[in-house]
Design a protein around this nucleic acid. Structure first.
Lengths: 193, 193
DNA sequence: TTTTTGATTGACTCGTCAATCAACAAAAAG
DNA sequence: CTTTTTGTTGATTGACGAGTCAATCAAAAA
């Protein structure tokens, strides 16, 4: 069975399995053996490819973030006017997949991890900066110097709505939440002329 | 030394030590022995009084929540008009102590814990419900049936701003964040007549 | 004074888990 | 047909940590 070119396949399988297991457990209390088993290999192989448990988690999070980034970029392709672009960014954040339980679990644990792990902290900062600057870029034509302020407000709302999914049996306000942010956006735009 | 009536003192010391250690570690990867040591006793005694690690964490979180509740109640004493009362609730959430690193750490870990621990889930739901109903009570005279919607928006912003403190070296926008929520509140009130 | 009772701990058990390693299998290279 | 490279695992190690228990200590009650 051992063919060549297994590495990317194994890495991908481990990343998928990690996300799945984190979702199942709701925490990072997941053993490398569990992850490896779900990915169809031994724990030794997981260590071989990733080096350690933290690396596996970071790889999973990097994967989630890259999907997220692609969604935002895709959403921005069809939008031209600043107002539409801001809406597109917000909508991208609320796309179906992003609120799956495993993804929410991963995010919550990622926040915790970023408090003690340098790699996670850097990664989180990248995400926050990118969201912020994306928003500011299109908000500036709309509200001028208040762009930073409005961007922070919107970003906080987006993150906050994630937290409210921490309760497993949260009400099914999937797109409802998105509309709420958009309503807030309109109110803020109005307030700044 | 063994006198009578030690229990409440020991429990209090353990709760304090737990909050402190969670802040130090940034995660729940804290041993009962560490906590007990900081509280000036053996780990066996911690188990004796609380029964298990989870119970200790929950007690710490209940303590944090009770302090928070008291702050909100105190803030509401001086406010009469609905608009002022809503502002009081928001300001209470941003009071100095609530954003200390240990408290933020405790909250982040609490969210994670609530995904797998029933006690934590119940406790979190209590907090969310109370904040929501407090806000709705005073928002209804201001915006009518939109009160629920506005309350959710404000609650999400408050929670979201907590998350942004996950990065240890977050910018020192202590009261700045509060003003941002208030600005959003005004914009939303305006939007709903 | 004796007994009871709460406070307290050191030592121990039992389980878990990350990480390592030696060894084996198959394909590619020479 | 050897040698090297890549893939793969079972077995093991070493450390750590939650929870238990029997035993000790001192005050208070009888």
């Amino acid at each position: 069975m051992p063919k060549i070119g297994m590495e990317p396949i194994r890495r991908g399988a481990l990343v998928q399995a990690t996300i799945h297991e984190i979702g199942r457990a709701g925490s990072l209390d997941v053993t490398v053996t569990q992850i490896a088993k779900r990915a169809g290999m031994s724990s030794a192989l997981a260590h071989h490819y990733f080096g350690g448990k933290d690396q596996i988690f970071l790889a999973a999070m990097r994967h989630i973030l890259s999907l997220y980034g692609a969604q935002v970029r895709a959403a921005l392709l069809g939008a031209v006017a600043p107002r539409d672009r801001v809406e597109a960014i917000i909508r991208a954040n609320f796309e179906a997949g992003n609120f799956r339980p495993e993804i929410v679990s991963a995010w919550l644990n990622f926040y915790v991890m970023s408090q003690s792990n340098d790699g996670a902290r850097r990664l989180l900062r990248v995400y926050q900066r990118r969201l912020h600057s994306n928003l500011v870029y299109d908000l500036r034509p709309l509200v001028g110097d208040a762009a930073h302020e409005v961007a922070d407000t919107l970003a906080a709302m987006i993150d906050g709505l994630y937290i409210r999914r921490a309760l497993r049996d949260a009400p099914p306000n999937a797109g409802r939440a998105c509309d709420r942010v958009l309503a807030c956006l309109d109110a803020l735009l109005e307030a700044h002329q």
